[in-house]
Simulated scan of single mutants.
Amino acid sequence: MTDTTPARPSVLVTGASRGIGRAIALELGRDHHVIVGGTTRRGVDAVVAQLPDAEPFVADLSDAEETAAAADGITRLDALVHSAGVGNRSPGEVALAPREEWRRVLELNVVAVADLTRLLLPLLREAHGDVVMINSGSGFNRPGPGGGIYAASKYALRALTHALREEERGVVRVTSIHPGRVDTDMQVDLQARMGRPYVAEEHLRPESVAATVRLALEASREAMIEELSIRPVFKA
């Protein structure tokens, strides 16, 4: 007997082995085929094992050849969620940060995003699919001392997202999500470097950000959530 069950929508989530990306993969895994992106086989496989319908996507996105090889293995795609990202190391002040640090952050937070999107756009166009960029409040707000590298990458990602949206309008929907402080390992490290005590309850849960991704993907087809800011209720 032929199986006539419709295939689940297929979504690639980068940075899905931890933090916000993992929460997104688990949330969408309830009714999507999830392609779990990450840099290590061990981390990716741990998330794949938790999902009813998933496969691995293991690549260092800062490596063009690895990225292209991994993308070549995808044959169907309805949505691409860019959650992989990196913060800058201390010191981040312009007077102290070396050229290599600017390159490291911009490479993963901007260049890799543009490149992977380029590689997968033919599939996304065919599906009239979605691209969701997990940006940051730093893509909206004025950075403080030492925050220039990370903020520059997120401002650039916002510009990339705006351009992509207009280039693909009517074919692929493009959404930019800007979370405030989220309870992740990156945030723990950031607050420690700023000398602040860390209280998890003062931050967004990764699951709250994942819910906004679902909101964008489930918008009716004539609608597009272009930008969405989600911030903690707690006032720092």
Rank of each mutant, 00 (worst) to 15 (best):
M186S: 11
V213E: 02
V171K: 02
R42H: 04
L106N: 15
A114N: 08
M224L: 06
L116E: 07
G139W: 00
V48K: 05
S83H: 04
G139S: 12
G37S: 06
I134N: 03
R231W: 03
E227W: 01
A95S: 12
H32N: 15
P145V: 14
R18H: 02
R30Q: 15
K154Y: 11
P98L: 12
E202R: 14
H128E: 15
S90Q: 14
S138W: 04
T39G: 04
S229H: 09
E201M: 03
G29D: 13
R142D: 11
D63G: 03
I149N: 02
S153C: 13
L106M: 15
A69V: 12
G195T: 06
I149W: 00
F234C: 08
V81Y: 00
N141C: 06
A210H: 00
W102A: 10
E100N: 10
H203D: 08
G21D: 05
A200H: 08
S17L: 11
D45V: 05
F140K: 12
G147P: 01
E218V: 06
L120D: 10
D60S: 13
Y150R: 11
E101N: 07
S229T: 14
S220N: 14
I20V: 15
L61K: 01
H82K: 07
A79Y: 05
A64H: 08
P6C: 09
L164H: 00
G144P: 11
S17I: 07
L106S: 01
L116R: 02
A59V: 14
S62M: 13
V213W: 00
L123T: 10
G144T: 07
V233L: 12
S136E: 08
G87Q: 08
D60L: 01
T5F: 03
E107Y: 02
G137I: 13
T14A: 13
V172N: 02
R181Y: 11
V213F: 00
E126K: 14
A200M: 12
V132P: 00
L123G: 11
M1S: 15
A16I: 03
E202M: 04
L121A: 12
D31A: 13
A236M: 05
E201I: 05
K235M: 12
I24L: 14
V233A: 07
R196H: 00
H82W: 10
V111E: 08
S83F: 03
N135Y: 02
S10E: 06
T67C: 09
R76T: 10
L215V: 14
H128F: 15
P6F: 10
L215G: 05
V44T: 02
G92S: 02
G43R: 00
E218F: 03
I74L: 08
R165G: 10
A25N: 07
P9Q: 07
P56V: 09
I177D: 02
P145M: 11
A156F: 04
H32M: 13
W102G: 09
